[in-house]
Amino acid sequence: MAVTAGGVSALVALLVSGCVAATWDEIEDYSFTLRLYDGKCGEKPRGAWRLTVVGDEIAGVVALDEVARKGPFIEGAPTLKELYEGALRIKKDGAYDILRIDYETGPHGRRPAGVYFLSRDRGEELCETYTDYQPLPMWY
C-alpha cells in the first residue's frame, strides 16, 4: 500500500506492514486527519487526508489539499492502528537513527498523534501527524 503525493511515494508504504500489539486506547469506529511531510513536521507538505475507519477498516478517504488531490491513495489508505503498529515495528527494527512517536491524551483517551523519522545514512527525514481524532457515533 502506498501514498503518492506529487509523484513521490510516502513512508506510509512502510508503515502498514507487520503486526505489533497497540498500547493505546483504540476503538474500531473513528475518523482522523493524516498529514505527511518531508523534513520536520509542518515543513514540506506531502498531502493531507481525512480518513474514516469503521470496524477497523477504512470506510472513507477525503483529500484535504491540492497535493493530496494530485496523488490519491493507491490500494486504499492505512488506519491509525496500522500506522501506529508499523511505526512500532520500524522502531524495533532500528531502521531509522531517530523514530519518535508522539502521543496525545484527550477526551477520547490516549492515542498516537504523530511520528518523526530520521535516517542520516539515507538523508531521509519524514513526519506524519494524526489530528482531529473523533470517535464515530454509534449509528454510523
Rank of each mutant, 00 (worst) to 15 (best):
G94R: 05
G94K: 03
G94M: 13
G94Y: 07
G94I: 12
A95K: 01
A95W: 02
A95R: 01
A95P: 03
A95D: 02
A95E: 00
A95I: 05
A95N: 00
A95V: 10
Y96W: 07
Y96T: 03
Y96H: 11
D97T: 13
D97C: 08
D97H: 04
D97S: 11
D97R: 04
D97Y: 06
D97E: 10
D97L: 08
I98D: 06
I98N: 02
I98E: 13
I98F: 02
L99E: 04
L99Y: 01
L99K: 02
L99G: 02
L99D: 02
R100H: 11
R100D: 15
R100Y: 09
I101V: 15
I101A: 04
I101P: 00
D102R: 09
D102E: 11
D102Q: 07
D102H: 09
Y103Q: 13
Y103F: 15
Y103G: 06
Y103A: 14
E104I: 11
E104L: 11
E104H: 09
E104N: 06
T105N: 12
T105K: 11
T105S: 14
G106A: 14
G106E: 12
G106N: 09
P107Q: 14
P107T: 15
H108R: 04
G109R: 03
G109I: 12
G109P: 03
R110L: 15
R110Y: 02
R110H: 05
R110C: 11
R110E: 15
R111S: 07
R111P: 04
R111T: 05
R111W: 01
R111H: 13
R111K: 07
P112K: 03
A113G: 12
A113E: 07
A113S: 15
A113H: 00
A113D: 08
G114I: 08
G114T: 08
V115R: 00
V115T: 03
V115N: 01
V115W: 00
V115F: 00
V115S: 00
V115Y: 01
V115H: 00
V115E: 02
V115C: 01
Y116T: 12
Y116Q: 14
Y116H: 14
Y116C: 10
Y116K: 08
F117S: 09
F117G: 06
L118K: 08
S119E: 06
S119I: 11
S119H: 05
S119A: 11
S119R: 00
S119Q: 00
S119P: 03
R120C: 07
R120I: 13
R120L: 12
R120V: 15
R120F: 09
D121E: 14
D121N: 10
D121G: 05
R122F: 12
R122G: 06
R122M: 12
R122V: 09
R122C: 09
R122D: 15
G123D: 09
G123I: 08
G123E: 04
G123N: 07
G123T: 05
E124G: 06
